[in-house]
Amino acid sequence: MDLGLQNKTAFVSGSTKGIGKAIAIELAKEGVHVLINGRDDDEVERTVREIKSAYPATFPQNAAADIVDIRQREALFEKYPQIDILVNNMGIYEMMQYEDVDDEVWETYFRTNVLAANGLSKFYLPKMLEKDFGRIIFIASEEAIMPSGQMPQYCMTKSMLLSLSKSLSKLTIGKDVTVNTIMPGPTLTEKVQQIIEGMYANEEMTFSEKEKDFMTTNLPQSEIQRFIRPMEIGRLAAFVCSPYASAFKGSPIRMDGGMVPTIF
Rank of each mutant, 00 (worst) to 15 (best):
G4M: 09
Q6D: 15
G20H: 02
I23V: 15
E26H: 11
V32T: 09
H33G: 06
V34M: 04
G38S: 09
D42W: 06
D42Q: 12
E43D: 14
R46G: 01
R49Q: 15
E50Q: 12
I51K: 06
A54E: 14
Y55N: 05
P60G: 08
A63M: 05
A63D: 10
I67L: 15
I70E: 13
R73G: 09
A75W: 05
F77E: 09
K79L: 15
N88R: 04
N88D: 05
N89Q: 06
G91W: 05
Y93R: 09
Y93T: 13
E94A: 15
M95G: 07
V105K: 15
Y109R: 11
R111L: 15
V114F: 13
L115I: 15
N118L: 15
G119M: 05
S121T: 13
K122Q: 14
F123C: 00
Y124K: 04
L129I: 01
L129W: 00
F133I: 00
G134E: 05
R135P: 01
I136M: 08
S141N: 07
I145P: 08
I145A: 09
P147E: 06
Q150E: 15
Y154P: 07
S159Q: 11
M160Y: 13
L161D: 10
L162F: 07
L164E: 13
K166F: 08
K166A: 13
L168F: 10
T172S: 07
T172P: 01
G174A: 03
V177H: 00
V179E: 00
M183K: 13
P184E: 02
L188P: 09
T189A: 13
I196R: 06
M199G: 14
A201H: 08
E203T: 07
E204Y: 07
E204G: 03
M205S: 10
E211R: 02
K212T: 15
F214D: 03
T217C: 10
Q221T: 13
F227M: 08
P230A: 10
G234T: 03
A237D: 07
A237S: 14
C241R: 01
F248E: 07
S251V: 12
S251M: 13
S251N: 11
D256L: 05
D256C: 08
M259H: 02
V260P: 02
T262Y: 15
